[in-house]
Design a protein around this nucleic acid. Sequence first.
RNA 1: GCCGAGGUAGCUCAGCCUGGUAGAGCACUUGACUGAAAAUCAAGGUGUCCCCAGUUCAAAUCUGGGCCUCGGCA
Length: 275
Amino acid sequence: MASPLIVIVGPTAVGKTALAVKLCQRYRGEIISADSRQIYRGMDIGTAKPTPAEQAVARHHLIDIIEPDQTLGVAEYQSLAYAAIEDVLRRGRLPFLVGGSGQYVHAVVKGWKVPRVPPDYTLRTELEAEAERIGAYALHARLAALDPQAAARIDYRNVRRVIRALEVCLKTGKPISAQQSVQPPPYRILQIGLTMPREQLYMRADARIDRMMAEGLLDEVRRLVAQGYDLGLPAMSGLGYRQLGEYLAGHISLEEAVRLIKKQTHRFVRQQYNW
RNA sequence: GCCGAGGUAGCUCAGCCUGGUAGAGCACUUGACUGAAAAUCAAGGUGUCCCCAGUUCAAAUCUGGGCCUCGGCA
């Protein structure tokens, strides 16, 4: 019989960690985090990372695995997650995949076969400049010539995704659409979706943001900036970090920054629902 | 009290001069997502146009009166 995998998903601040920790205690489980922000060391408060106490009760994997100036793509995340699941199973424990990064969860649960083309930042910068020059529509037309199928699925205005598709086509000489498939993993999966009325979710998220501020989120961001981490880094684009970075750079007031964090967190809640 | 500015979507505001029955950004709702994903992108609804009267075929728009807000002067 196939090995079990429990998956816990849901929007931010709904209580995924609390439930997962409790279940781990009861069923001898370990948590594999599916969170694209908790992977960074030194970013604790703003990412609502499980506390040391929670981590002592239930072992967590894939938290604190890279520095803020490093990056981790879905494909890498996926193989790390599969390895962690195998490791947990081998030791006779129950794996819980827990997190709010829909892309990560799908990559693992559905078994996306992501084209193995690492990002080429030089090429991306060139293509971005080209998009500026000839326009998003023309860049999309370039993709359509190489891979009509992929072009049909990507809105021409979504330059970032058009560029990734072009990157794969150009690097491999083959259409990206021919290199994307799905191969479900060999687990018996039980997926638990946590939810709550929208309004309540917004209130919980807002309250948590206030708590983060009280716990010193601003100092955390200040420290990261002092360590030389640029605001343009993917790690610094997360909710809270971006806006507080703007404040520290003198572009907006602290009040405005907190207001923006809340608004954008609401949007994030909605985005998570789509997964 | 006087002078000035203003009252249009939940918020900030455009439209008013040159009447033809309302629009943008944000919020909000819905959706996409295969190596940046807490990223990036798309679609959508929203209105006693402060009130009353007048002019007019037709008023957010012009005229008169009233109410309210903000700033300056007393």
